[in-house]
Write a protein that binds this DNA or RNA. Structure first.
Lengths: 333, 333
DNA sequence: ATGAAAGCGCTAACAA
DNA sequence: TTGTTAGCGCTTTCAT
């Protein structure tokens, strides 16, 4: 293993100069710097992260907590985080809580301990013991908490748009198949529903309840949706929407003729489903990238500042993508 | 920050005893141990990973390199790795190479440097500069290289089963839409094709070429498949198969009546596609879990042994799942 | 602009 | 069974 000492010897300076040349190049004279860089390259020197961390308190890595890596939404988010972090020279430690609240708290603590900061993308985060973060700069994704910065998709507005779309098509009774109760993600959508209810006085919103944010959730919601008398359904996300489509097909209910379905996110399957799914598109990777960016901005290039910089909040827009699953309701009998 | 010293003071022993109680409990007397554990809990002591690493050379984390986190296959793999690693008390550092060979090599080097070992799930890995691993215990997933242990899905056998299935249905001309040229994953499938060609002397295999391992790849292969005169197509994976289904539908080609389609892996979309997809099911999470397990076994509970233990290889089975996309070929005219 | 030197918190000989 | 002690490789004052 090549260490600072070897580089120092090879370039005829002291190890502190080498260290400085690497972290604060401007503080080292041009010719010295050149010699040092040459030696570094020649010897193939790679700093020992552990040593550097031990001394500086930094880790060069970022933690990311997600509820389910197999959920395409979080896979994309992770991809975005990974990509941006890579650009910023940071490694990403991923933890999957499997939608389990207790594990979430544990994992956040563990991550906080071994990273410079943690991004928390987790539906139940509101209940999260913020103490677990233990002063580690953290950013919430799709959730808000006092004193913590966050990046969120504007799901309230998305919901507004979805209702407006259905309303324009002529739907007047619209059902909502919700996500995990108490999750911020679900709460934002319900806020949007409330706003829409006020704005479109001739629309009735029917609450179908809380469902698992996956395909099974949609399958569970399908019969309730049919029974509700609604002509349009807004599902918690595309996975739920696709589950809905699958079960409705099995029941012989025609989509969109008998029932229109709208999802959120525009994940891969939405384009592939039959019928193809109308959805509120989100740039999910962009959300991940934005979260890392915010972390970088907040902590500064040299994170020792640890600027918990108020609770900055960034909101990402969504866009309606109309496909086959929505149409004007067909008159009965 | 609570350190060993604090715990030592609180429990009236020396710091080495505390350290020992934590890492080799059996070497500390029962009552002492109890006192130490109590102090640890009370003070909320958390070991400083960096310090422990610096001294011991271990990191307590495992690297995982995948070509694309958004690909459901690798999302599941990552999930499996994460779950098993968590059980084993290790953190997972994920890196996404974006199917880029050069980046792959870079990332493997970076991961090797900051983890106890790296799991490489990478199609091009054969070209990988093994030197980048730099002695770090590594395990290949779906690839083999001399001297390196690996966990692979038995794609040759899977291919055999797929051909046998189509053959039994009466197909005699079968096309293969391949994956990344030169990838081990593709090579194994081609091995299976060769074996099948020998075993079923009345079957003709048509090679459609190499395609991107995603939906676009299938869309690109569709017209070639039609032109090939084959009645059955085996796609590199389910994503490709689904792309095939999508484009065939747009061309007005009936599946399975005019063309049967088989994929590999059984990812979520396969059950959701129209028609639902016949595929060779793989326990993908299981593959990830097995890789971590192998790492744990090979390095031993206390990794100092660093047993590169020959090139152990584990093979995972697949299972045919018949759905709607395959049927007997319909006679023409 | 550069160097000397003091540890960061922990582990692992070695001693007792 | 427990304690003492010497660093791991690096960053960072403080001198020069």
């Amino acid at each position: 293993m090549i260490k600072l000492d070897d580089v120092a010897r090879a370039s005829g300076v002291s190890i502190s100069t080498v260290s400085r040349a690497l972290s604060e190049p401007e503080r080292v004279a041009e010719p010295t710097r050149r010699r040092i860089y040459a030696a570094v390259r020649e010897l193939g020197y790679r700093p020992n992260r552990a040593a550097s961390l031990l001394r500086s308190g930094r880790t060069g890595s970022l933690g990311l907590l997600v509820p389910d890596l197999e959920n395409p939404y979080f896979a994309s988010l992770t991809k975005g985080v990974q990509a941006r972090a890579q650009e910023a020279g940071m490694a990403v430690l991923v933890a999957d809580s499997d939608e389990n609240l207790r594990r979430e708290t544990d994992l956040v603590g563990q991550l906080a301990q071994q990273t410079d900061g943690v991004l928390v993308a987790s539906p139940r985060i509101l209940d999260l013991d913020v103490a677990a973060l233990d002063g580690t700069p953290s950013i919430l994704i799709n959730a808000e908490a006092p004193g913590l910065p966050s990046v969120s998709v504007d799901y309230a507005d998305a919901t507004m748009q979805a209702v407006a779309h259905l309303h324009a098509l002529g739907h007047r009774r619209i059902a909502y198949a919700g996500g995990p109760a108490g999750s911020s993600a679900d709460a934002r959508r319900r806020d949007g529903l409330t706003q829409a209810d006020e704005r479109f006085s001739d629309v009735q919103i029917v609450d179908l309840g809380a469902f698992s944010p996956r395909v099974e959730g949609g399958e569970a919601a399908a019969d309730l949706a049919v029974g509700s008398g609604a002509t349009g359904i807004i599902a918690f996300n595309d996975l739920v929407a696709v589950g809905l489509l699958a079960l409705l097909a099995r029941r012989g209910i025609a989509v969109p003729d008998q029932l229109s379905v709208v999802g959120y996110d525009d994940i891969l399957v939405s384009r592939l489903a039959t019928p193809t799914l109308t959805t509120m598109r989100v740039d999910i990777r962009g959300v991940g990238e934005a979260a890392v960016q915010m972390f970088v901005d907040l902590t500064g290039r040299r994170p020792k500042t640890r600027a918990d910089a108020a609770d900055e909040r960034r909101t990402m827009p969504t866009r309606l993508v109309v496909r086959e699953s929505t149409a004007a309701p067909v008159q009965r009998g």
